[in-house]
Simulated assay, not measured.
Amino acid sequence: MGSNRLEAMLQQEPNLFIPFITAGDPTGEATIDIALTLQEAGASILELGIPYSDPLADGPTIQEASKRSLKNGMSLSSAMQLVPAMRERGLTIPVIIFTYVNPLLQYGVKRFTEEAASLGIDGILVPDLPFEESDELSAYCEQEQLSLISLVAPTSKERIQKIADRAQGFLYCVSSLGVTGARKDLDPRIEEFLNTVKEASHVPIAVGFGISTSAQVSTIQALADGVVVGSALVHQIGEQGEALQNEETKELALQRIKSFVKALISE
């Protein structure tokens, strides 16, 4: 079922909006509420980040969210368990797990792919797994019909082509070299980079890292098939952290998150 749900979404949706959230920030229960709110707001695919103590690709906003989540005892296993709970409550969009190599190796790659498929997860993205070392994970994902999402950065044409040849689901293009985090301006060379990727790729391309304003979202939507928003959204969730944990204020907090997302993608 897994990658079929993702394939179906990729075929029907010309402008993919892919929000990233940290599992367990502020709580597991709130993560389920947020996921459903994002689906209502127009999310095409959900990226569910696994909190990690040493997130190399993440800027301060997501690092802080990871810290909060780890404090609550969230782990790779408990984050994966949130997905069937989301599905039970009506989440139909594909879910991609975003995790670093270390937690994955500790958990066991084969065990992860088997469980992920059985829990209604559609794909996995591992930002610190070099393409050259992805064969084992790729083979297990294939067995379980999970999409292994590849990241591609502005490097040589040859390397972009190599990664694109084996891409599954969609290709995640890193908009700038460096860590994630909201930025004022997009890299001026982004258009050239995305054109290179488009020429090489047989799957849709989505762009992430540092996209935080509706103007940036519009720019990316004109150049690519999808846009990933992480830090800007995680920051909003952080601001609503207390309100999300209180029954009386929860609905209002979710409304605020929804309005934030709608304003980002409705240009």
Rank of each mutant, 00 (worst) to 15 (best):
A164I: 05
V179M: 12
R159G: 09
G181D: 05
Q145I: 00
S150A: 10
L129N: 07
L151D: 12
L177W: 06
F131T: 07
A153F: 01
S175D: 02
E136Y: 14
S150N: 12
V126M: 04
E158F: 06
E142M: 00
I163W: 02
D122W: 03
L148M: 13
P127D: 11
Y172K: 11
G169Y: 07
D165I: 00
G178D: 08
E136A: 11
Q168F: 01
G123S: 08
F170E: 07
E158V: 13
R183C: 12
S156A: 08
Q143C: 05
Q143D: 14
Q161S: 15
G123R: 01
V174W: 00
E136D: 09
R159S: 05
S150I: 00
D128K: 01
R166A: 11
D187C: 09
D128N: 11
E144Y: 09
A167P: 01
D122I: 03
D122T: 06
V126P: 05
L146E: 05
L125T: 04
Q168Y: 00
V179G: 04
Q145S: 12
R159E: 11
V179Q: 14
L186G: 11
D187H: 13
S147F: 12
S156L: 02
T155F: 10
D122M: 03
L186I: 13
E136K: 06
S134N: 12
V126R: 01
R159D: 06
D187V: 03
L129M: 14
S134P: 04
T180M: 08
G169F: 06
K162D: 13
P130H: 09
S147Q: 07
Q143V: 13
G169A: 09
G181A: 12
F170I: 10
V174A: 04
K157L: 13
E133Q: 14
S147I: 01
G169V: 11
V174F: 04
R183T: 12
L186P: 10
Q168K: 15
S150H: 15
R159A: 09
Q168R: 15
L148Y: 09
K157W: 11
F131Q: 04
T180Y: 04
L171S: 01
L129H: 07
S175V: 01
C173A: 15
I149M: 08
K184C: 00
I163E: 03
